[in-house]
Simulated scan of single mutants.
Amino acid sequence: MQVWSVGIEGYRSIRRLNFPLKRLNVFIGENGVGKTNLYRGLQLVQAAALGTLTRELAMEGGMESALWAGPRKKNDKARIRLHADVGALTSDYAYRVEAGLVQQAGGTTIGAGFLREPQVKEEELIFLGGRRAETLLVRRGPAGYARDESGVRVDLDNDLLPSETALASLKDPGRYPDLHVVRAAMTDWRFYHSFRTDPQSPLRHPCLAVTSPTMSSDGSDLAAVFATLAHIRQDTADLDRAIADAFPGARLWARTPGRTASFGMVYEEFPKRVFDASELSDGTLRFLALAGALLGYRLPALVALNEPETSLHPDLLPALGRLIAKAAERTQVWVVTHSQILADTLEDATGVQPRRVYKQDGETLIEGISSLGEVDDDDG
């Protein structure tokens, strides 16, 4: 299921943004313009499906830190509003969620919750794939309903806490099949922000030899991902090409796993010497981790990369762009970058025009896209 559009409102430097997505989506901008807030907004949509939205916001410093920092209209509620349209061939489902502050009266909280914790205020899931739109889930505070497999309205359980999303809580796939489909699609997304390369990094050490078709977000199973391609799928052609593109004359060595899996690199200058992961440079290791994320046996429904060029030598960026373009043939990819080299390579390889992110009067904006999601050209 592809993501067809995303909306973020009231979050940090984003006052209001709605934008369509394609198979490959590239956002480029300078440091400090709010690119990571775009990436993080999509991550929070997934957190709603996982049931961790309010915890994620609390970890950011609470609503005081996460809310739009600019001016609001007098009657505008202090809310973070997120939405995503997902579907196989078109926008079949529209999910919307709002988070806000704990309601107070006379200095005390109303309902279950702590004074400063973020709370889910509203949720809605609408099916758009039929002749007419059908509301599948509505939540206003503690009250609301969901439609079951027969289309019958079922009131939400009174035990649903303000810190919980209904989308994550209604987990019976037989009774709520549409909610299950949307939740499964969103929880399948993978976000890759950075990879540790210090001596204790899991990338540098063997991992358990367990078949791993998709790499975890921290790359801790990278060796198993490579072993799965080499010894289960027995097809490393794309991986070999990507590594040769980045490191001419070099090749990956994925050892036959025992209880653990490990890997190394063999270089043209030293054909009989395997350089273990613990010996590789930080840049080489990061590129290999990105290759594992983008060329795994089974890719997730969406791969989101936040500044993947970090700590890579500029000479590696064209190869990284071609690697990302290859992955976009198999899944939906979201890239946030400040590298013009990477953005240009992606445009040359795919024809997709990067969208420039900028800040105006403290507000993050996307060039060529209005706050309502209207695109000013055919490439957006």
Rank of each mutant, 00 (worst) to 15 (best):
E117L: 00
V138M: 11
L203E: 03
H193N: 14
E124R: 15
V210P: 02
G129V: 00
D157E: 12
E117D: 13
T135Y: 02
A133L: 03
W189F: 15
Y192A: 03
C207H: 05
R132W: 06
L136K: 01
Y145I: 05
D159L: 13
S169K: 14
A146M: 01
Y192T: 10
R175K: 14
P177W: 10
V182T: 11
F127R: 04
S201I: 13
K121R: 13
T165G: 11
S169H: 12
L115E: 07
N158G: 13
E149G: 01
V152T: 13
A166H: 10
A185F: 08
L125M: 06
Q200G: 05
M186I: 12
M186G: 06
G144Y: 08
T187V: 13
E149R: 14
Q200S: 14
A185E: 04
D178T: 13
R153P: 09
L208S: 11
P118Y: 00
L137P: 00
E123K: 05
Y192K: 02
F191P: 01
A185V: 12
L156V: 05
L125F: 07
F195Q: 01
A133E: 15
A209D: 08
S201L: 05
H205C: 09
G174W: 14
V152F: 07
E117R: 01
T197S: 11
D198K: 05
P202N: 12
R140E: 15
P206Q: 03
A143W: 07
F114T: 07
M186A: 14
P202D: 12
R196F: 03
A133N: 09
G113M: 03
L115Y: 08
L128Y: 07
T197H: 09
E123P: 02
E124F: 02
L136E: 02
D188P: 04
P118S: 01
V138W: 09
R204S: 03
P173Q: 08
A166E: 09
R204P: 01
N158H: 10
A184E: 15
H180K: 06
L160N: 08
S163C: 07
F127P: 04
L208M: 14
Y192N: 01
T135H: 09
T135L: 15
F114Y: 05
G174K: 14
D178V: 11
I126D: 01
S150L: 14
P206G: 06
E149H: 09
V210A: 11
A143Q: 13
F195H: 00
H180D: 10
F114R: 06
L203K: 03
P118L: 00
R153A: 13
H193D: 10
K121L: 15
Y176N: 02
A185W: 09
L208C: 06
T187P: 02
V152L: 15
G141W: 04
C207Q: 04
V181W: 11
T211A: 11
R147M: 08
D172N: 15
L156T: 02
I126S: 01
T197P: 06
R190C: 02
G129N: 09
T197M: 09
P206W: 02
G141F: 04
L115R: 13
V138K: 10
L203N: 07
